[in-house]
Write a protein that binds this DNA or RNA. Structure first.
Lengths: 334, 334
DNA sequence: ATGAAAGCGCTAACAT
DNA sequence: ATGTTAGCGCTTTCAT
């Protein structure tokens, strides 16, 4: 593979001149530029990013660390990140932690080794070990979707408390008084916040006594198992609030298997919509988060931080949630 | 950030000794090793992969270039690749070409610049420009899912002709004689092969005259539009063969909108299943490809090529397809 | 407008 | 079992 040296020799110039041409930096005469460009093509020269990064201390690479890459919510975030990054000439490395703190920290090491310029992180838990590691290596971090207490970083997320509150309000307005919530893992901010919103709505309605709270994981299997368990309560709830899309799917599967009709027997509302290209019949009433925009904004924050355009204090961006009313919650509110 | 030099000084050894410790290469005495390891921890040392790659000419990084990262079929392939790669200490860079030949070639350049050790490629078209580029830069390529004529590479795929043939046979066995196929783009091997399988099955049944072939793209929107068009044929088909999962979803959406019942009015069979965690009611009769295994096998082939274990001749792995009969094709065959 | 020298952090090759 | 030397390919810095 040809090096910058080969190109320089071929064009009769110094390596640094070739560097100036391919990076559009510094003065190069028209004639020289053309000679260099011809040499580049003739030799099929491709710059070596390892050498460039080693010398310049910048790799033009970001990382997106997610907890579940099979969840369309995160996939859509990823596209938002990708598009925003590419527009500014950055590449993105995707990492899947499977909700594991250990995996997250492993990736943190790998990413530091790869000298990524910055990281967008969906934290697997509320501990700050990975964030502190990044920061101690001078790698800026933007938190996305979930928050961590007592760390100073830029962050982008939606208001989970408010989203859950609105969804449960909606179920209450339909006359339900026994509403259960199936949520994600303890210690994950979105799981906790959505429970908080649920409790707030019940309390507002004077139904604080009726709380039925189930922690689990943000997966279809967990949703299935807890749905079965929930319906064994006496008396069983008449409505269910699912804290994410996979939980909703698991619940629907369980209800199909144990012959419970939605919404006739139990009403259902959940967090996170599914992308249109995956769903034949959008059926679930949801609090939809603007995933693509979340990815975009997080990337913009990170890029501003990298270029020094950002203010010294950290920025928190809270994006609005959209409540989409569909069949699963029962008859529409007039 | 601490360098190997800092660690060496701190431990009272030469940099190369530190290198031997962190790479587990060459002889290092127990005592020295321990001193070095302590220094690594105390300084929070993280090796710089750019420097290592520049020197050693190996990045321990593979790339997976796909045509549609939103399609679960490719997402599952990606997990197969990821798992196999990590097991051998490799990282993976994911690239999405959106079925664009131009994007594919852009990524080829980027990946060469990043000095990836090898590439797994779902080609966007049957031209071999990107493959030739990789090969001229000494980067081994494994083709996955789709083939390209006249190139010498390792490859992993399923037998699309046979899968389509079996699916259409099944529809024929249910008594259908007017079966249409909605496929992907011309020039893409899987789109063409699935049409070939369809034609073969019809010809076998002496129904060659009844061919109704529709090219489009492997997307939900294309499936929707062509479904509407197909049903305007006079007489309309009584069964439909969809060449991938997104086409099937688009067709089902169209049928819901134009009030055509599946399978009562039209039977349906399609290529590619959807992952269980995304689907409440698996409904479509499909030819399911072992996507995870495809990703795994492709990675293994690539790794063997990199380590020199592979034979000189290229290897073609053809994996078996599973036909899963469900409601969409009508009553089960006894 | 162009170039020379130096060095980023690491490891291959060759000592000892 | 450990170290020395050199250099991977590029860009920073400082000339000219």
């Amino acid at each position: 593979m040809a090096t910058i040296h080969d190109v320089a020799k071929h064009a009769g110039v110094a390596p640094i001149t070739v560097s100036r041409v391919i990076n559009n930096s510094g003065y190069v005469s028209r004639a020289t530029r053309e000679r260099v460009e011809r040499a580049v093509v003739e030799l099929g020269y491709v710059p070596n990013m390892l050498a460039r990064g080693l010398r310049s201390k910048r790799t033009n690479t970001l990382a997106l660390v997610m907890t579940d890459i099979t969840n369309p919510f995160f996939t859509v975030i990823a596209r938002g990140v990708e598009d925003a990054a590419r527009k500014s000439g950055y590449s993105v490395i995707y990492c899947n932690t499977d909700e594991s703190e250990t995996e997250e920290f492993k990736y943190a090491q790998i990413l530091a080794q790869k000298q990524v310029d910055g990281v967008i992180l969906v934290p697997a838990c509320s501990k700050s070990k990975s964030v502190e590691f990044f920061q101690s290596n001078d790698i800026p971090v933007v938190l996305i979707d979930r928050s961590i207490p007592d760390v100073e970083t830029d962050a982008v997320r939606c208001d989970s408390v408010s989203g859950a509150y609105q969804l449960v309000k909606l179920l209450l307005a339909l006359g339900h008084t026994r509403i259960a919530v199936i949520s994600g893992p303890r210690g994950v901010s979105t799981a906790e916040d959505r429970i908080d919103g649920y409790r707030l709505a019940l309390a507002d309605a004077g139904l604080g006594e009726n709380e039925q709270i189930f922690y689990g994981s943000f997966t279809q299997v967990s949703g299935y198992d807890l749905a079965v368990k929930v319906m064994k309560q006496i008396p069983p709830p008449t409505a269910l609030f699912c804290a994410n899309n996979f939980i909703s799917i698991g619940v629907l599967k369980a209800f199909r298997d144990i012959r419970i009709r939605v919404p006739e027997d139990v009403a259902l509302a959940g967090f996170d919509d599914l992308p249109v290209n995956l769903v034949v019949d959008p059926f679930i009433t949801v609090a939809a988060q603007p995933a693509y925009e979340m990815g975009q904004r997080a990337t913009e924050l990170l890029l501003e931080r990298l270029t020094g355009e950002a203010p010294d204090e950290c920025q928190q961006v809270i994006l609005p949630i959209e409540i989409i009313t569909r069949k699963s919650s029962g008859q529409a509110i007039v």
